[in-house]
Nucleic acid binder design. Sequence first.
DNA 1: CTTTTGTATAATGAATTAATATATAATAGA
DNA 2: TCTATTATATATTAATTCATTATACAAAAG
Lengths: 144, 144
Amino acid sequence: MKLTTRSRYGTRLMLDMAQHYNEGPIQLGDIAKRQDISVKYLEQIIIPLKKAHYIESVRGPKGGHILAKAPEEITVGEIVLLLEDGANLVECTGDIAVCERANICPTRLLWKEVSEAMFARLQATTLADLVKKANTMEDMESKT
Amino acid sequence: MKLTTRSRYGTRLMLDMAQHYNEGPIQLGDIAKRQDISVKYLEQIIIPLKKAHYIESVRGPKGGHILAKAPEEITVGEIVLLLEDGANLVECTGDIAVCERANICPTRLLWKEVSEAMFARLQATTLADLVKKANTMEDMESKT
DNA sequence: CTTTTGTATAATGAATTAATATATAATAGA
DNA sequence: TCTATTATATATTAATTCATTATACAAAAG
């Protein structure tokens, strides 16, 4: 029941880009260094984010990636939804066909409600919120 | 980010026992048939539930298992907490030592809040609630 | 035209999950 | 006491998913 590295790294990837919003194309090599994640793995993770048009990319020297929307307009919920396989804690919540007990199973309804509670909290946080939080945390850190 | 079969089957195991509360020892063989889960696997899953004193067991013929508390007093949160490895969506939420970025990582705080939202919903449901829900669902089903 | 960056697909290794197998222990009831 | 029945404990295996790396190709700046 743990989040995979895909959605966690993906969120940090997007946060890093939000922290450099309006600075032109950001290269995966730089993000990899700052976030301490392998470039190769980031290349994997960025694919669905590009397909879903959260990111636009430029090839060649001085190339890189740019957020296609403002950090205020991208929620962590959207990112997790994309990088985890949906925001459901169980299969049968999304697709009733996977379990023949589905229509008499009270636990299924509970798992669904729990998934929704989880997702609601994720949707309530934007990349801009995370950037702001990161700034205050760095201030706290530097004062010690 | 899916719940494992351990916690899902474990919850159904406990629900099944709640549905037969005060009927004496319930045998795993019977639960296995009703829930369509292998006896061998249930034997694995029941161990932590016994260790945590949610269940008491009787050996020999006519033996079986009995809920040690009333269904009203057992929450699904407790069961999931026991059968998943804690109720955290990430490792670093519980143990700060697993990641050296922990104290400057804004995503960690978010994952923590999301975990808490999830767990709160699980804690709000007791086995008695599930039994009641199961009854109304069966009524609905029989009327079609 | 060479270097730098991204893109696409495949392959691999490790870890976890899910489930089964085997052997032992306790006890009700004949 | 014996036998069938149920639980307990430990080990093993199979399958799947997760995480990561490798290889080959494409585009564009200078």
